[in-house]
Design a protein around this nucleic acid. Structure first.
Lengths: 369, 369
DNA sequence: CTGTTAGCGCATTCAC
DNA sequence: GTGAATGCGCTAACAG
């Protein structure tokens, strides 16, 4: 039977398929087709007004049938001539090299480099992610100036809402990285689906630990502020997974101070000694390596899962003390944030193709790269 | 202690950081700095010759200190004027919609669309991946013509080597997707690290199955041709993992005919009934869904792992009969292949930044997307 | 309101 | 060997 199958394909033989890519329409061609000039086409495309209804209709008709796409290459070139220059403020938590926010930052910078054609001035205003006051100060300094656009890390909800209200009034566009905040109107928000992150964490912890093991969910607590929105969603999703699929699993919750590694270590050690039957430990933020190190310290072996390929996490994966990481692609989030903002600044409208959320990957030692 | 830590950061307060992206040098600026004209700079940059030693030295000196980078945007624009047009032949296995090679194809097409600025004609010549003769015919038809460049799926080694020899003689550049072949000189090869794929498969099967379970490694066999190189490497790596880390695990090997779903199903059913203690089944090619379906048929539950997010695989993941997929990003492979080829055709040299291998991700139900 | 035109950075042609 | 000049698609200023 298999022979017959193969034979049939052989008889059918090879077949080929010629294709010339549909040449992109140029504004010149559109102008010719619509019987107007390039200037008019440009005005229609950019909603610059000062176009007669007839001309408008003619151009729109051509656009309908041929589906025009901007040529970003030449746009960028032409924009240079206008010497239009933008200032973009970025306010995100400060971070050590190789930590989560530093990776986002490298994505931001990569985009600024890639779009170096366009004249953009970027200005970073960092704040302390464990201190709401420093965030407020940072945001106030941003509200006081008139930037072309703003990129915000959404660590503190109330402060973000306040700033965004002011930006809305001034019609300054903004985008979020690593979060979204209800009651605001960003051009776009770049973040991984936190629900998925939490359930994935649960699924992997469940699958990779032995049947009878207890599992630990370690929760960071912040001084003087409620737990970050992302962590809360992940925790909730983590627990939902077990409530729905594995009611029999015992989940122990422990709190630790993410702001101080030394403290974390002692808190976690104590927690694990109190819960000896724990065979898997889940971190809901990107500092899982602290947990791995604490486990090493007390000589305990457990499956550990965390978030993001930070330097500390990568080290622990290589050392074999951290089993897997859920990668939210912070670098891409940063890159997309800048890209979408520039698109908005240049064309006056958000780029639809950039609205999709960033993908979520799973990283083990083997594919750490 | 934690209080003190936070306090210190608060006192330090926010801090900001201004940055203007280093403006890229233009060839005009280089020309001015070197005291020559843009034409001369261009000749130096493109090694076109006809430049006096003094001019060469002057330009090189400026390039050393300022590190010039091509502006791909404007290059593409300028190239259009020359009306230079390319014809690229692509010979890969034919494939149903949503299957592995069709995904590669969509990546190829995406690149052709994205680089629609450049005048490129693409021509597909498909062959039957289970029939070496059809591959030979396809490759001969390519050798008979004079394309600007060629993209090849490396399913059949001998045929590939023969064709590449002829292309080398004619100085026609080519790149590989989904493989590499010793004894050939491609501009680039795009494929996931097969060693990593195999070890990752092993690691996940090991982790996700119960301690005492036997594991099955299912191997496709091809009529009239030896097993594909990629599958062989994955199998080898899979077995190495267990030989190195888990000598106690029992691995059963089973063969099945990947060319006919019906046959596959019956073969796999028979295999599993002969090996009742198998708790995990690993597929080394992208048709894992056939295994899942066979398991469903006989009402057996086992952890199943496979490769790539094809339509069939995605369906089984959603149905819960396929547990995870190792994603080789075939779409990106296709995209990169075209991109690197165009870079070569335009600039006469491979783009170093495009030589990196494609990343490998792991997909569960949750992050199927 | 509309069409014309200069010029962005670059590749190439063509006089000198 | 060399530099001036042209034009790619596009933006925006400007003259009608």
């Amino acid at each position: 039977m298999c022979e017959v199958h193969t034979y049939l394909l052989a008889v059918r033989g090879i077949f080929s398929n010629f294709a010339t890519m549909p040449q992109q329409l140029t504004i010149k061609q559109i102008a010719t087709l619509a019987g107007v000039s390039v200037g008019t086409v440009d005005r229609v495309l950019h909603n610059r007004g000062r176009v007669s209804p007839e001309a408008m209709a003619a151009v729109k008709a051509v656009l309908e049938t041929h589906s025009y796409r901007y040529n970003l290459h030449t746009s960028a070139v032409a924009f240079k001539k206008t010497k239009k220059s933008f200032s973009i403020a970025i306010s995100i938590p400060s971070s050590e090299k190789g930590e989560y926010w530093d990776i986002i930052r490298s994505g931001l910078d990569k985009a600024f480099r890639e779009y170096g054609d366009i004249s953009v001035r970027s200005e970073y205003v960092f704040f302390d992610q464990f201190n709401a006051l420093s965030c407020r100060e940072a945001f106030e300094s941003i509200a006081a100036k008139d930037y072309s656009a703003v990129i915000l890390g959404t660590t503190f909800v109330d402060e973000t809402v306040t700033l965004c209200g002011k930006l809305d009034e001034k019609h300054i566009p903004y985008v979020f990285v690593d979060g979204k905040v209800p009651g605001t109107n960003p051009i776009a928000s770049y973040l991984a689906d936190q629900e998925v992150c939490g359930r994935l964490l649960a699924r992997l912890m469940d699958g990779l630990t032995a049947e009878g093991d207890e599992l630990a969910l370690l929760i960071p607590h912040r001084v003087g502020a409620r737990i970050s929105n992302n962590s809360a969603i992940r925790m909730q999703a983590f627990k939902s997974y077990f409530a729905e699929h594995r009611k029999d699993r015992v989940i122990r919750e422990g709190f630790y101070s993410a702001s101080s590694p030394e403290l974390t270590r002692s808190e976690i050690s104590a927690f694990l000694e109190e819960n000896p039957r724990v065979g898997g430990v889940a971190a809901v933020i990107s500092t899982g390596y602290i947990i791995s190190d604490a486990l090493s310290d007390i000589g305990k072996k457990a499956v550990v899962g965390g978030f993001d390929v930070t330097e500390g996490n990568a080290r622990c994966v290589r050392e074999g003390t951290l089993d897997f990481l859920i990668d939210q692609h912070p670098e891409q989030q940063g890159f997309n944030a800048v890209e979408s903002l520039l698109h908005y600044l240049l064309y006056g409208a958000p780029d639809e193709s950039l609205r999709e959320h960033t993908p979520i990957d799973i990283v083990f030692l083997e594919n750490l790269g």
